[in-house]
């Protein structure tokens, strides 16, 4: 997913937990087929909510500290944070509309 920026162990706090706008984090891995299948939907969401919410990828193999801190047991896992607080968490493949509904609720709550 070339168009989605990444968060890392070094930047997760700054980019995600200290963000002023809601953040959708996609915990993924290079070997994860379902993650690849979800990629277009995540790109669509990033485009749709640009400016209202941020979207980041976290590769769990390259960022073990974040994986442990967030208790990631499988990929894909999606988390939505609002001002540093986790407001939604989904594990496994899911539709863009379900993620969108959760993100829209977070955007509304943030305003």
């Amino acid at each position: 997913m070339a168009n989605i920026p990444s968060a890392t162990d070094a930047t997760f706090e700054e980019k995600v937990l200290k963000s002023d706008i809601p953040v959708l984090v996609d915990f993924t891995a290079a070997w994860c087929g379902p993650c690849k299948a979800m990629a277009p939907a995540i790109e669509d969401l990033a485009r749709e909510y640009e400016g209202e919410a941020a979207v980041y990828l976290v590769d769990i193999d390259e960022n073990p500290d974040t994986r442990h801190a967030q208790g990631i047991m499988g990929v894909p896992t999606f988390m939505i944070f609002n001002r540093g607080e986790l407001v939604e968490r989904f594990t496994g493949s899911m539709s863009r509309s379900k993620l969108a509904a959760a993100l829209e609720a977070a955007i509304e709550a943030a305003q």
């Binding site: 277009p40 939907a41 669509d44 485009r47 749709e48 539709s95 863009r96 509309s97 379900k98 509904a101």
Partner: peptide
């Protein structure tokens, strides 16, 4: 709801 997107920008 899954289909409630512009297929031009959300083709999946």
């Amino acid at each position: 709801a899954a289909a409630a997107w512009d297929l031009g920008s959300a083709p999946g």
